[in-house]
Design a protein around this nucleic acid. Sequence first.
RNA 1: AGAGGAGUGGCAGAGUGGUCGAAUGCGGCAGUCUUGAAAACUGUUGUACCGCGAGGUACCGGGGGUUCGAAUCCCUCCUCCUCUGCCA
Length: 423
Amino acid sequence: MLQVSYIVENKEKVIAGLQKRNIPQVQDILNEVIILDEKRRNTQLTLDQNLAEANTIAKQIGALMKEGKRAEAEGIKQRTSELKATNKQLSEELEATKQSLLKALYNIPNVPHDSVPLGNSEEDNEEVSRHGNLPALGDHAMPHWDLIKKYDIIDFELGIKITGAGFPVYKGKGARLQRALINFFLDEATSAGYGEVQPPIVVNEASGYGTGQLPDKEGQMYHIGNENLYLIPTAEVPITNLYRDVIVDQNDLPIKHVGFTPCFRREAGSWGAHVRGLNRLHQFDKVEIVQVRKPEESYQALEEMCSHVEGLLKKLQLPYRILRLCAGDLGFTSVLTFDFEVYSAAQKKWLEVSSVSNFETYQANRLKLRFKGPDKKTQLLHTLNGSALALPRILAAILENNQDETGIVIPEVLRPYTGFDRI
RNA sequence: AGAGGAGUGGCAGAGUGGUCGAAUGCGGCAGUCUUGAAAACUGUUGUACCGCGAGGUACCGGGGGUUCGAAUCCCUCCUCCUCUGCCA
C-alpha cells in the first residue's frame, strides 16, 4: 500500500497517477486518507498524554504505598479511574481510526510509472518490441488441444473426473516435457544468480495481505476454510513473504530468488470460448523469479529480469513480443509491468507467458520489508517479480509451432532434459 | 489427536506485581593502544508512533482481562519441546 507521508507530499502526482487507472473520485479517496491520518495522530497524542499522566500517578501511588501513606494513595486513585475510562474510549477510537485508515489504503492501487501508457484494457497495451519469425504452418496444422489428444500427452477428461475442469493430467512424454521445462527454467535462473527456494504452496492470511492478493483478489484464490489458508495463485506470495517483517542487512542485498510451484486460480468469471485447452487453467506450473532491491536499483533489476525472460524465449526459439502494460491493464500493486507473449501459430494469437513487474515500495510497505541505509535509518525496499516462465502456454506454443506431419520437434535446449527429440 | 513443559532484546540467559525497555554474558559498531591484526580497555548497540525539540507513548509469542500499576496474575489462541497414539 502507499505510504500516507508519500500521499501527502506528492498529492498531485498520486492523483494524476490514479486517474490514469480510471479510478473515480480519486481526490475524495485521498482526502479521506489524509483526514483519517490526522485523526489518528490527534487521538494518539491525547491518548499518549493521558497515559503519561496515568503512569506518573501510578508511580506516585507506588511510592506512597511504600511509605505507608495508604489514605493519601487512595485519594489520588480517583483521578486514575477517570483517566482509565477516557483512555479506554480513546484507544478504541484510535483502533477504529487505524482500521479505517488501513482499509482505505488497502483499496488504493499503486501509482503507475510515468512511462505507463493510458488505456482501458489489454487492447491499449504498448508493443515495445517483437522478435523471431512467425512460423508458417500448412493447412494440416492443428491447435494444441487437438495435438495433445493425437499424441496422448495431456488428458483433460481424466482431470475432470478426479478434480474438475481446468485440472489437466499430463501423461507420458507430456509429463516428461513438463518436468524438462521446470528443470530448464530453474537451471537457467540459478546460473543467473537466483537462489532456489521451495516454499509452501499454501499460505496464511497475513501472507495474502503482504503481497496484496488480499483483500483485492479474495475471490480469485482457493480458500481452505477449516484452516483459514489459501492456495497460492503464484509463488510470488510465499517467496516475497519470506521477507515479511524483516530488516535486511545491507550486505545481503540484492536478494534474488527463484522457485517452482504449482499455482491455483479460481478464474471466477473469466471462462469462455477463447480459453480452450491450455490457455487458461485452475492449476498450472510456474517458475517465478523474485528480487528485493534498494530503491535506486530497482529499475535496473527490472531490466535484468526482462532480459532473463527474453533469454529463455530465445533459447526455446519461440517468437515473442514484449508489451508495456497500459494503466487499465496494470495489476493493482504494480508500478510498471512488462508482459511477454509468445505466438501460438495454430491459434494465430499471442499468449501471455510472463509478467515482470516492479512494485517499488507498495508491497514492502505492507510487508514491513526494510533495510538500514548508510544514515542508519530504516527505509523500505523495492520488490519485483516475474514469471520465468509459466508452463502451459509455453507448452501450447511449442506444440503448435513445432508440429510437422509426423510429430512435434522438441527445442534443442530441452533435449538434455527430456531425453527425446520428438513427440 | 491426548498428557505434561516452555516461549524475554541478534544469540544465550536473569527477572513472579511498582524504581524493568528489562541484569549479565556473547556478538555487532565506534574509539584507545598497535606498523597492522589479535588481546585488553572505554563507550555504544531493538522497533514503531507522536513531537521543531526537550521529551512522551507502545511493544517481554498474538489477542483479551484483573489492578492505581503487569514481563510477572487470569482467560484464549499460536508456536516449540518431551511422552503416548496415528501416519507418508
